[in-house]
Write a protein that binds this DNA or RNA. Structure first.
Lengths: 228, 228
DNA sequence: CCCATAATACTCGACTCAGAGTAACCGAGA
DNA sequence: TCTCGGTTACTCTGAGTCGAGTATTATGGG
């Protein structure tokens, strides 16, 4: 059952059909209307395959098919008993059990040493100013919506997004401070590696030099396995 | 070129080959050794298809094929000029331009109203205690590693992860406070909806009742489009 | 020296998903 | 009346991904 709990769009479909039966196009319209695209990755081309797969798994079933004029048929689906259970289980799991999401930026940070430090710093600075603006803008929007009477119940996912964004802004600010004023350990060796790349030396030779020159920072490499 | 900048594993491969030529299995070993699995989603079954696709796109090329004993052949790959450029461009983009990652928990929050408020609260409480423990543990581990001489250069992705985690813990703490002491707007209507579900009323009837009973919170629904 | 286990080095098939494409209908303006 | 863009409601295809499976060779305890 839990085999294919991959695409959250499937969960969204279950939730919609838990409210009332509807046809795929209405799902897509409802999701748009409720701004779910902001918080759930939705590809409207995938919707029909997702619906089909839910049907194959017995979680939803065809209620009726309607034809209006010469338009394509609309197939109305309803959730089954098994589907209700699956929706409750899946949603409960997502709320209570953290899963690792692998944000792309985390991957980028972990590969950052492949760029020279000056360029990396500049790139991160660009990101910081974008994110600062996004944060201010988001805070303004949500404040206005709540003032306008929207219950927090329908804004909680946006509050979460902003909390994470604020944390990233703080993180970047602190990181860039340290990189600028040189208190970021490993920085000198990092710069040296990229200098030496220009000389045509091999990877092993470069490392030998850098470990020798920056013992205090890079000697650690030799017993890195201790932290495994 | 940017057509297939989907899988960060491909970027990791480019970065590894930017350092030195190697064969896929060595990539997988190196990635494991450097703990990249913590920050990059890696499926070692995908590695070979990813390598093949990079080759098809001319970003990497076969350097040699070696056979040691009766083992399967090892195909050693090297990065091309185009591959170096692509690696630099891609990594620069990831560092400087924010992309929306759609964390599963955000999707779950946006679908949370489908569960009754008491259950949702309890599930979030479970999550909070798990995340609190993870945060403490992670902070301990990173402090120990830095004390042990690891340069921050190699820990920056973990620092980021912890910053995000800390923000989530703060967010959840505040949210649960508000949900517990009733200051979370929409809460009463939310509870009522789930009460009424038991009575067999239709979705529309339930909404009519709830909007009537909780005007101050739910009248907003009628002019929700103003915020679109 | 034997056997269980781990490590090495991939292969394969089923599924999923993104994104473009299709085709009918509808209303408004020229 | 013609047509042109927008909406409705899907369909199709190829590329990509998952994750289990396979086959061989070291390794180390008894």
């Amino acid at each position: 059952m839990a085999a294919t709990r991959r695409n959250p769009l499937a969960l969204a479909v279950l939730v919609l059909l838990y409210e009332q039966p509807m046809h795929p196009y209405q799902m897509s319209a409802t999701l748009k209307e409720r701004r779910k695209e902001d918080s759930i990755k939705i590809n409207y081309g995938s919707l029909y395959s997702v619906v089909e797969s839910l049907q194959n798994r017995g979680l939803i079933e065809v209620r009726e098919t309607v034809r209006a004029g010469n338009r394509p048929e609309r197939t109305v689906y309803a959730i089954t008993e098994a589907g209700q259970q699956e929706m409750i289980d899946w949603l409960s799991e997502l709320l209570s059990k953290p899963v690792k999401d692998f944000p792309q930026f985390e991957a980028a940070l972990s590969l950052m040493p492949a760029l020279p430090p000056e360029e990396a710093t500049e790139l991160l600075e660009r990101r910081l100013s974008t994110q600062r603006a996004a944060l201010e803008n988001g805070q303004k929007l949500i404040a206005r919506a709540l003032d306008g009477g929207m219950p927090r119940l329908f804004a909680v996912e946006h509050e979460y997004e902003l909390a994470i964004l604020a944390a990233e802004v703080e993180f970047l600010t602190a990181l860039l401070d340290d990189m600028r004023n040189g208190s970021f350990s490993g920085l000198a060796g990092w710069r040296r590696i990229h200098e030496l790349r220009g000389t045509g030396l091999s990877h092993d030779e470069i490392w030998a030099i850098v470990i020798e020159e920056f013992k205090e920072d890079f000697a650690w490499i030799d017993h890195a396995h201790e932290f495994e």
